[in-house]
Amino acid sequence: MPPIIDPTKCTGCGVCVDVCSEDVFFGSKKGKVPVVTYPEFCVHFNCCAYECPEEGAIKVRIPLPLQLLYKGGDR
């Protein structure tokens, strides 16, 4: 469930916790890897990933029911 945090890259700076307007990280403590308390409230706008200072530390995964439907050959 989105977002996914890579604990080896996350420094616990708390920027994602600070900027998420849906507050999916509610209850997270500064200095620690954030907890995704309300994953189903994520709206996948990438705001956390956009603000994260560590390359690749946070990624927003698109849940299956929301994924794009399209025409054309599969890879």
Binding site: S21, E22, C42, V43, H44, P63, P65, L66
Partner: peptide, 10 residues
């Protein structure tokens, strides 16, 4: 899936 609203969830 409430979060799939078009617009903004809050």
């Amino acid at each position: 899936w409430l979060a799939s609203v078009a617009g903004s969830l809050t």
